[in-house]
């Protein structure tokens, strides 16, 4: 081990954060770039399923809330892109990796939002699952990533609460509305559990990431925490979680739950989910349609620079 490596390991072991200009192993840099950029892409693509309902929100109140939430997700994407940039990758490179499919984003956003109740289920479950993950990441070892996470976590709790409140209104409504809420839960439950990734014994990068404190808890640990919390919350809504195997285990002090359909999981990861193509096409189109704006803004700056140089 070189002295650089030793110094790095010491910091990791003593819970000292790694900062952009510090020496770090290549793999640590690469793993962080991969994880942070994929996290950023998830925030950005994650705006699409909810953006779908902004114009059709059932009231002005709901519309303002949904708009604010989606705007927050844009902000989260921006915090994370700039955290990744401190590791030496450019914004354009990351966006290109998203558009070519080289970089992944969270598969949950490849499911369609077919009813208003989905806005409730997404806030409650999808943001809820994201929060489990993100709270743990507030203590991740790479400084800029940890700071972005702290900022994000402060904003996320409103996301989950507004979603839960949407479902609460629906279950207190008429029979059709209650059915809408149940239907949304049925469709979003399993994909939400998949958000935590493969089981620990099938998660190849996990051990190294845990050692480097890039990850603080394993996929299965976080998934269990989420199941325990969400099961209790579902009782308040009076909705049934679509898992016949879900049962309190006194001995473990946790809920047991059924096996995830891993075939579906890998299928969506590989690009064959219901909306993978639509999501990427939308992102690419937004990027291409915005190209003239990006160019015009720079051209305008250049022109003004030249003019003030001439005047001086």
């Amino acid at each position: 081990m070189t002295s650089f490596e030793q110094h790095f390991e010491d910091k990791i072991n003593n819970e000292v954060n790694i900062e952009p200009r510090d020496w770090m192993p290549d793999d640590y840099r690469k793993t962080n770039i991969r994880q942070i950029s994929q996290h950023a892409h998830s925030e950005i693509v994650g705006m699409l399923p909810e953006g779908n309902w902004i114009t059709r929100a059932p009231s002005l109140r709901r519309k303002a809330i949904l708009l604010a939430k989606v705007q927050d997700e844009a902000g989260h994407g921006l915090y994370l892109y700039s955290a990744a940039e401190t590791l030496g990758i450019t914004r354009d490179e990351m966006i290109e990796q998203l558009h070519t499919g080289k970089a992944k984003y969270s598969s949950i956003f490849n499911y369609p939002t077919t009813s208003w109740a989905d806005m409730g289920a997404i806030g409650w479950l999808v943001d809820g699952a994201a929060i489990m993950n993100q709270v743990a990441l507030c203590r991740t070892s790479y400084g800029p990533y940890a700071r972005a996470m702290v900022r994000i976590c402060k904003e996320e709790s409103f996301h989950q609460r507004q979603g839960f409140e949407i479902l609460l209104s629906l279950v207190r409504g008429n029979a059709t509305q209650k059915k809408m809420a149940q239907d949304a839960l049925n469709r979003w439950w399993w994909p939400s559990l998949m958000m935590f990734g493969p089981n620990d014994d099938n998660s190849p990068h996990s051990a190294q990431s845990l050692h480097w404190r890039i990850k603080r808890f394993s996929n299965d640990e976080l998934r269990q925490k989420f199941v325990d919390a969400a099961t209790e919350q579902a009782k308040v809504l009076g909705l049934a979680i679509p898992d016949p195997a879900l049962k309190w285990n006194e001995e473990r002090g946790h809920y047991d739950f059924g096996e995830i359909d891993w075939e579906e999981f890998w299928n969506v990861v590989k690009g064959n989910g219901p909306c993978n193509k639509e999501r990427l096409d939308t992102r690419r189109k937004a990027w291409e349609d915005g190209e003239w704006v990006r160019e015009a803004a720079m051209a305008y700056v250049e022109k003004r620079k030249n003019r003030s140089q001439k005047a001086a």
């Binding site: 902000g75 921006l78 915090y79 700039s82 914004r91 700071r147 972005a148 803004a297």
Partner: peptide, 18 residues
């Protein structure tokens, strides 16, 4: 944190929103 912008005025506006 940081952000991208064409010039200072845009950077301040983007910082406000971000």
């Amino acid at each position: 944190g940081s952000l991208h912008a064409a010039d200072a005025a845009m950077a301040i506006e983007n910082a406000r929103d971000t």
